[in-house]
Write a protein that binds this DNA or RNA. Structure first.
Lengths: 148, 148
DNA sequence: CTTGATATTTAGGCAACCTAACTGTTAGGA
DNA sequence: TCCTAACAGTTAGGTTGCCTAAATATCAAG
């Protein structure tokens, strides 16, 4: 197998991969459209569960800029799902912590979304589920490549 | 294995799958942010390549509502990448066709995006690439489940 | 005690999506 | 024939989530 053939195979795989990416965005939209809590907000909220996430950390972790994180945090705060308090160690920083209501909202949203996806996965064959399971860590790895 | 255990395994897989979905959105954003043509526009444009896509069909295919498709088509038309003409068989309908410039733009955008993804896929092991390749048709199937 | 770096918020803007309302066309009866 | 319901698309107006640039406040090092 010469280099060109290898490249072609890689490009063909890339094309299929991109198609899957496109579809993923669509699936995410569907998942979001049925719920009170958006994916963006759920992502922030999950990070606030441990009780002391900083705005910059949240933004970095979600792959968005700091003002975008702030925006979501403010919405969650208005909804009573998180509270913002000054970081005792660094007064420039803000600690974002989930409230009890926030914790409950995460559990609820997570459960509903998982059940929706599980319902689809349940219609697949065992072999198909195994294929998905095997690919997920690789997807994770690809994502980290993109981040850098 | 009783039902509860099966459900738990399915829910766990669903959770991981959702994480991958979330990451996909992020990867898509990265892919888009470096290019002139957005994914939304590229999707519309590809459908106009054959020379006679209708607005409703484009919208259905992309999983968006008709006005959203119209919006993208208008942008592409202003950029000279597609033209709109009355459908000879049904004057209510509009046929969207790519121009020569549109065709060139698709090829360019597709190539660049595929090369970007291929570059990442190239850093994986053969086994990892095989895992991705095996999962892609299943992802496709899952997507179609969601559409219905 | 000044100055540069860091953490966050505010302000303003853009892209892509949505629903509701409008225009024009078609097609199937009465 | 002609009326009316269904259909195709566009327009209008609104939302969400992202972005950059600029403002505010604090920290830390010389």
């Amino acid at each position: 197998m010469n280099t060109d053939q290898a490249d072609d195979a890689l490009l063909a795989l890339a094309q299929s991969f991109r198609e899957a990416l496109r579809q993923s965005v669509y699936v995410m939209r569907r998942l979001d459209s049925e719920e009170q809590l958006s994916s963006a907000q759920l992502g922030v909220l999950k990070m606030a569960l441990d009780g002391g996430a900083r705005v910059g950390g949240i933004a970095r972790n979600l792959g968005v800029k700091v003002p975008s994180a702030t925006e979501q945090i403010i919405k969650l705060e208005r909804a009573g799902l998180v509270k913002r308090e000054a970081d005792p160690d660094d007064s420039r920083a803000v600690r974002v912590a989930a409230t009890a209501a926030g914790r409950a909202a995460v559990e609820n949203a997570d459960r509903r979304r998982n059940e929706f996806i599980a319902g689809i996965l349940g219609t697949l064959s065992q072999a198909e589920r195994d294929a998905v399971r095997a690919a997920l860590p690789v997807f994770d790895k690809i994502n980290h490549s993109v981040q850098n």
